[in-house]
Design a binder for these strands. Structure first.
Length: 392
DNA sequence: GATCCACGGGAATACACGGATG
DNA sequence: CATCCGTGTATTCCCGTGGATC
């Protein structure tokens, strides 16, 4: 962000008397362009990518780290920077096209497996990153996309390093599957596996990211606070308390910070008070699922979740809840029920046994497993017809 | 060049059956 | 055994795309 932009945002925030200057920068699903305190890890990754500087293809590498340790943030930031330096835009263009084509161009492609659940979507994601023209979202076969990708890489002597993030989460594209899809396409493709663990039988380099230590997480929070909130909105003691509570998990800490700012704004407070903070921390479940897991769901599923949050789901059988949600949506009760079981299967919500009343199989109630304040704030309203891109 | 239409992917929905429980 | 929950899957629907047809 440019300095004048920052200043303008501050000024407009003062005009509006809001404590949040920049919701985007406060969001736990938005990554900083410059990761805080991760120099050594970045160096290790640069070592692994070293061959790319000579136009060669680096070997596959795995990046692992516990939840909230910032593996995604690191890879996203580094890939952006590498494309900036080594990609087409980083080279001289125009009259030197012919010269530039003589040497291979290496692209760093980041694929979020949470948002890529089919072969079609995977090829589309990779191809989009390598092309400037629009890639069809439907109406064309998977094989056609694969052929286009193959052609794209072969014809222009391109290399691509594809990161598959969250490859080891439930319902996401596995690393093995991604390799199976990429291998027949081209020799000029390498991969980076980003997740909690390495893929099975991993024989390649691994860069392990550890959880943030206390003071590091304080630094991360302080950075967000200083940019996203008006000065004096939250005191240092609260930031430290937040960091301690989150125990090294940046997602939990940022989700709670966002929630606290939201609560304070909601109650027209001019600063984040302890009760806002406590309320927000209570909104982040223990072993919380990353809010982006919920935000990467299809729009209809997000709407079901959003309605679910707004009604009181505790101690009610799934059937009841599904019926009520269905009345507030265009979906049938059967479909909502199907969705709820599916979301429970993915771990976004949890089924808890309900005491029996009457005959038949025991029903379950539902517990939410993600930070709801952030989710409600970041999920599009149900009547919103705009087709803005959730991937952006 | 305009229009039509078959195709493919993906989401929604229907449905059936297995299993738990009183 | 009656009942209802939970789950796997078949079917239907929707719609963008791009080649065929006029």
């Amino acid at each position: 962000m440019e300095l004048h932009e920052r200043i303008d945002r501050r000024r407009s925030a003062r005009d509006g008397r809001g404590i949040v200057v920049d919701y985007e920068y406060l969001s736990p699903v938005v990554h900083r362009t410059e990761p805080i305190g991760r120099g050594p890890v970045l160096e290790q990754l640069l070592d692994a990518f070293e061959p790319a500087f000579d136009g060669d293809l680096p070997a596959p590498v795995a990046v692992t780290g516990p939840p909230g340790s910032g593996t995604s943030a690191i890879v996203v930031a580094l890939f952006d920077a590498m494309n900036d330096r080594l990609g087409e835009t980083g080279r001289s263009i125009g009259t030197t096209t012919r010269a530039a084509r003589a040497e291979p161009i290496t692209w760093f492609v980041y694929v979020d497996a949470r948002r890529v659940r089919s072969e079609f979507a995977f090829y589309r994601a990779v191809l989009s990153a390598l092309s400037t023209e629009a890639i069809p979202e439907s109406g064309v076969g998977t094989a056609a996309l694969r052929d286009r990708l193959q052609d794209r890489l072969a014809r222009h002597d391109r290399r691509a390093i594809v990161a598959i993030d969250h490859h080891d989460e439930p319902e996401t594209l596995s690393y093995r599957r991604a390799r199976e899809l990429l291998d027949p396409v081209s020799e000029s493709l390498s991969t980076v596996a980003v997740g909690r663990d390495t893929p099975d039988e991993w024989g390649e380099t691994t860069v392990a990211v550890s959880a943030y230590r206390g003071h590091e997480l304080v630094d991360v929070l302080t950075d967000r606070v200083s940019t996203a909130l008006s000065p004096g909105t939250i005191d240092h003691e609260s930031v430290r308390r937040l960091s301690e509570w989150a125990d090294g998990n940046a997602h939990d800490a940022l989700a709670a910070l966002y929630g606290a700012a939201d609560r304070a704004t909601e109650s027209d407070a001019d600063r984040i008070q302890p009760r806002h903070l406590e309320r927000a921390m209570g909104d982040v479940p223990e072993n919380s699922v990353h809010v982006d897991r919920a935000l990467s769901l299809s729009r209809t599923r997000q709407q079901v979740l959003s309605t679910l949050v707004s009604i009181e789901p505790a101690d009610r059988p799934i059937r009841d809840i599904a019926d009520e949600i269905a009345t507030q949506s265009s979906l049938t009760a059967g479909t909502v029920k199907r969705f709820l079981y599916e979301l429970a299967d993915r771990g976004v919500i949890e089924r808890v046994p309900l005491p029996i009343n009457g005959t038949g199989r025991r029903p379950s109630a539902i517990e939410l497993r993600f930070p709801t304040i952030v989710f409600q704030s970041l999920t599009p309203a149900s009547d919103e017809e705009s087709d803005f891109d959730l991937d952006g």
